[in-house]
Design a binder for these strands. Structure first.
Lengths: 64, 64
DNA sequence: ACCTTACGTAAAGTGAGCTTGTCATTAGGA
DNA sequence: TCCTAATGACAAGCTCACTTTACGTAAGGT
């Protein structure tokens, strides 16, 4: 599961900690998702999509 | 997190077991998602959306 | 040289997504 | 009446999504 989170975050000029605050998750969770260590839960994916005003499929892309 | 899974499945005339086979999950997982016991993982949400040729946001709707 | 910010990462713990297995109920068909 | 299919529900167990805490490092500013 690839994602464009790092790019979207950079466009906003946010640090991982900034993004983590807005998503109400830990900075480490943001880092883990960006570096592809694991996929977010569906509710968190919704929050991310809403924050960037995009569809989930525009941000996340599953390989399968 | 509400979802339209039961309706979509009914439109196809599939049993929960039929859908579970196509999604490669257990019948209990389909049942639990339909009855709102928990949300699917993001990869599973992608599989569901692809199976019904709809976007994730068209099938799942988070309350938050 | 020192401080701060940002990022990566690791260990340990909790909770949710998913499994297999089982049982009860309802409805239909032979 | 019996058998089967479909569904709902529960329990126990596993993996992983996520947490907190913490440490190392690289870059910039003073």
């Amino acid at each position: 599961m690839n994602n464009r989170l790092r790019v979207l975050r950079a466009e906003k000029g946010w640090s991982q900690a900034d993004l983590a605050d807005r998503l109400e998750v830990s900075r480490q969770s943001v880092n883990a998702i960006e570096t592809g260590k694991y996929d977010p839960s569906l509710p968190l994916a919704f929050r991310i999509a809403r924050l960037f005003s995009q569809r989930i499929e525009e941000i996340f892309e599953d390989d399968a």
